[in-house]
């Protein structure tokens, strides 16, 4: 188990479980806080892709593994070049639960190769994506995503 790495990220958002769930898979929402469109029909077994909002370039791809609206979504996550190589897919689990007047969103990213480019990318990316999602849902305004992601990618 210890040869693959795992990261866990949690943010508390003053919002509803349904809004957070929707924000993960509505491309117009992900464009705002992620600078990318998450595109899929989100049915178990379907493909999903993560498309750069300004260039249309596909940055990530994978499959929907589990979908329990509005609480739990599990997807595989890979560079497009590895889309046909399941052994290179990493896995992302979103768990959404209500806590008082807020929502706890937990992102577990596992099946990562330690020291890989993917690991470096996601450890920089998730804190940015999640705090920007929180800002968007709580204030209706997201940070400018282009600057955010240049920043996140540059340190790689």
């Amino acid at each position: 188990m210890k040869n693959k790495s795992q990261f866990v990220y949690v943010t508390y958002i003053s919002s509803s479980v349904e809004k957070v769930w929707n924000a993960l898979m509505d491309p117009e929402m992900t464009r705002k806080y992620w600078g990318h469109l998450n595109v899929s029909d989100w049915k178990v077994g379907s493909n999903w892709k993560h498309e750069d909002a300004s260039t249309g370039e596909i940055r990530l791809a994978g499959k929907v593994v589990e979908s329990t609206p509005p609480r739990r979504l599990v997807i595989t996550w890979a560079f497009p070049a590895d889309a046909q190589a399941p052994e290179k897919h990493t896995r992302v689990t979103f768990d959404i639960e209500p806590v008082g007047n807020a929502v706890r969103l937990k992102v577990t990213h596992d099946e990562l190769e330690p020291g890989s480019e993917m690991e470096r990318g996601i450890t920089r990316g998730w804190p940015v994506v999640l705090s920007n999602l929180k800002t968007l849902l709580e204030t209706n305004e997201a940070m400018e995503t282009k600057a955010l992601f240049e920043h996140a990618h540059k340190r790689g």
């Binding site: 795992q6 990261f7 866990v8 990220y9 949690v10 943010t11 998730w126 804190p127 940015v128 999640l130 705090s131 920007n132 929180k134 800002t135 940070m143 400018e144 600057a147 955010l148 240049e150 920043h151 540059k154 340190r155």
Partner: peptide, 25 residues
């Protein structure tokens, strides 16, 4: 136990705007 840097990033976003970011980087 896992390190969760998200709250630290939220603090960073609060005081470091998008213009300062590239200079600080």
């Amino acid at each position: 136990h896992y390190l969760n840097p998200v709250p630290i990033h939220e603090i960073y976003e609060r005081w470091i705007g998008k213009f300062e970011r590239s200079r600080l980087q």
